[in-house]
């Protein structure tokens, strides 16, 4: 009696109508969400494009050297040169700006939300199931509501990237802060820390490695999603692949694909290097110390400690 071909509960229509209603009635809200993303994207993209390619490559190489060492630096420089020679430089910069924008917004949203979750079981009780759903939903499913609410193009693409990339950062921040050694928290309270001091002096510094681990995940998700959002008209390497496929131009698609893979590896290495840093090296000065000692080929912990100590004592 129930015809398998028939639709009895038109959920798809309801959702469609629901989202249209939201889009109609909350247009100012979505416009105001769009605006900062748009601005940020333009600033970052404008800046990247203004820098001469070779200088930018050198800057990235330096960053990689500072964070992750010689090998990653070499890989970064060679890969980026290759990308430049492949003629997909501008597309790569667009993808990079998309990711950078998403990361900035994710950090601004994700870390405070993670802190909130760590401090309040009630907040975590509400946010956790939302994250569960978000993380199990295939990422291209987000494209439809994003298109309906924000339209098509690179900015809505960035919004979709943010939505997909933010959950791990919230999760890891929450876990990191909750996992801080109880005795350290007690020490903070026992010496008269305010809530804010507890957060800044103890919880965040101790949770930092975990939070950076979350950031690494966020970056990778942003990379993947920045390709997928080509489907809603976002520019960048994803669009190169998509257009290549559309025109059955396998060569062009493959070139885009190579660019994506290289950028993904570079970003992964860099963020992982940040996350896996020596736990001692969480102050800026210590980082410089560690990087300098790496630069001079001394991987010796002791030397690193000394250098850092001398830098610290100048403080």
């Amino acid at each position: 009696m129930l015809d398998p071909e028939e639709v009895y509960i038109p959920l798809d229509r309801w959702i469609q109508v629901g989202i249209e209603w939201v889009a109609d009635h909350f247009r100012p809200l979505f416009r105001s969400i769009r605006w900062p993303v748009d601005e940020l994207l333009n600033v970052i993209n404008g800046t990247l494009e203004a820098i001469p390619p070779l200088l930018l490559i050198a800057l990235f190489g330096g960053l990689a050297l500072w964070l992750a060492g010689k090998r990653t630096a070499l890989f970064t420089v060679v890969s980026m040169l290759f990308i430049l020679l492949l003629g997909i430089w501008l597309e790569t910069l667009t993808t990079l700006s998309l990711i950078a924008t998403a990361i900035v917004v994710c950090v601004i949203i994700g870390i405070p939300l993670g802190i909130l979750c760590a401090r309040s079981d009630r907040a975590w009780g509400i946010i956790r199931p939302v994250l569960d759903v978000m993380q199990t939903t295939p990422s291209f499913v987000y494209l439809i509501p994003v298109v309906m609410l924000f339209g098509v193009g690179t900015v809505p693409g960035a919004v979709a990237v943010i939505v997909v990339a933010v959950p791990p950062l919230i999760r890891f921040t929450n876990i990191g802060i909750r996992g801080v050694n109880e005795e350290l928290i007690e020490a903070g309270i026992a010496f008269g820390a305010t809530d804010r001091q507890l957060l800044w002096e103890i919880q965040l510094p101790q949770a930092l490695p975990t939070i950076l681990g979350g950031l690494n995940q966020t970056v990778l998700l942003a990379m993947v999603m920045s390709v997928i959002v080509a489907m809603i008209g976002a520019e960048g390497l994803g669009l190169v692949v998509l257009q290549g496929l559309g025109r059955l131009d396998v060569g062009r698609a493959a070139v885009g694909g190579i660019g994506i893979v290289l950028m993904a590896i570079i970003l992964d290495r860099l963020t992982q290097a940040v996350a896996e840093r020596d736990p001692r090296a969480h102050s800026g000065k210590a980082r410089i110390g560690a990087a300098l000692s790496r630069l001079f080929g001394s991987g010796h912990r002791q030397a690193e400690g000394k250098l850092e100590a001398s830098l610290d004592s100048k403080n």
Partner: peptide, 30 residues
């Protein structure tokens, strides 16, 4: 807590990423 009662912990409760002198100065920093 800042001026009258302080505490010493079983597992020391020192901040691992801060130098010894900064650990000692912790209460004063707060």
């Amino acid at each position: 807590r800042r001026r009258r009662i302080s505490m010493v912990f079983q597992n020391f409760g020192l901040l691992p990423n801060q130098t010894v002198i900064d650990n000692v100065a912790f209460g004063l920093k707060l």
